[in-house]
């Protein structure tokens, strides 16, 4: 009897243990089945291309023609020493960043502050401000191509009526073509305002109430409360803005080609990505283009880390981690 009891006890423990393990294993197997598309995609569409392009950057690899041939560091050497467009594309891109990023950050935050006012009909304005962010870049570029027409375009008509005797030639001027693209991209700055707005609305109201009780002016409240608490968002926008500026492409390709050849950009608008595209698909040098892509990957990594390092000094995180887990 006792034996049987003992036996049954042992039987249940034996049975229970594997069942529990079995359950955890079943859950793991199920989970891996669920995420299998990502694993396949990660290997196939991310690791594989990155590996191929790393290899390609050390080869002479052409769009059409002989199979790739190993050339060592020749592509990089060529880019850094003999490619006359490489340095100019970096310079043009940096200049464009200076032209668009500071005004973009300031305008975006100002619009967000404006949208944060509790006045009637504010949602309608939010809807309007965000429109440029959803419309096609090609259509917008073609639209501005017409608005910026130096003789009959609307922009210069406005300038003339304001008394500007000799308004810029915009797209036909080597000097004004980049400011023209900058104006176009600043037209879409309302898209970023929405992100700042979410940051502003996350600031607890009691901080402002406390400041008001202490007799702080709204100007002081902005510098002491709003700006520090919005700094993580500003920092995020700075990084994404920097990296986005290196990816200016559609407007440059459409405004820059004007009515000339099919997708052959003018030198003034040969931004980094435009240069990369031209090398790859107009000149068919995929090896060199891969090297350019890798330079870009490394550069954006450095920029992200660098800005991150600098930001430690001035970005204020209310209890570290509070921003990492915001529920959607």
């Amino acid at each position: 009897m006792a034996d049987i009891q003992q036996l049954s006890v042992r039987a249940t423990t034996i049975e229970k243990e594997p069942k529990k393990m079995h359950l955890a294993r079943r859950e793991a197997i199920a989970a891996y089945l669920f995420i299998s598309p990502w694993i396949v995609g990660f290997v196939l569409f991310l690791l594989a291309p990155v590996a191929i392009s790393l290899y390609a950057s050390f080869t002479r690899w052409t769009l059409i023609g002989p199979p790739p041939r190993w050339v060592g560091f020749e592509n990089f050497e060529q880019i850094f020493t003999r490619d006359r467009y490489f340095w100019s594309s970096i310079r043009i891109t940096l200049e464009f960043i200076l032209l668009t990023l500071p005004p973009g950050l300031i305008l975006g935050l100002s619009l967000a502050l404006l949208l944060n006012q509790k006045v009637r009909g504010i949602r309608l304005f939010r809807t309007i401000f965000y429109i440029p962010a959803v419309v096609s870049g090609v259509a917008v570029s073609i639209l501005w191509l017409n608005l910026l027409n130096s003789e009959v375009g609307a922009v210069n008509q406005i300038l003339r009526s304001l008394g500007v005797v000799d308004p810029p030639n915009w797209l036909n001027s080597t000097q004004w073509v980049r400011p023209a693209v900058a104006i176009m991209s600043l037209w879409g700055v309302g898209g970023t305002a929405v992100i700042y707005l979410a940051g502003l609305q996350n600031i607890p109201i009691h901080l402002y109430e406390a400041a008001e009780i202490d007799g702080a002016s709204s100007w002081q409240a902005f510098w002491k409360i709003t700006l520090p608490l919005i700094s993580p968002t500003l920092f995020f926008m700075l990084i994404t803005g920097l990296i986005a500026s290196f990816q200016v492409f559609t407007p440059a390709l459409i405004l820059g080609t004007g009515t000339g050849g099919f997708f052959s950009p003018s030198p003034e608008l040969r931004f980094y990505l435009v240069h990369l595209y031209t090398v790859a698909f107009r000149e068919g040098k995929l090896g060199t283009a891969s090297a350019l892509a890798w330079i870009f990957i490394i550069l954006s990594g450095i920029v992200t880390l660098g800005v991150y390092y600098i930001s430690e000094k001035w970005v204020y995180y209310e209890e570290s981690g509070v921003n990492n887990d915001t529920k959607t």
């Binding site: 291309p49 191929i52 392009s53 390609a56 891969s290 990957i297 992200t304």
Partner: peptide, 16 residues
């Protein structure tokens, strides 16, 4: 991988 800018993969994906 969210940090990787989309344009960086333009040529790599094309090669594949």
């Amino acid at each position: 991988t969210m940090l990787l800018p989309g344009a960086a993969l333009l040529i790599p994906s094309f090669l594949l």
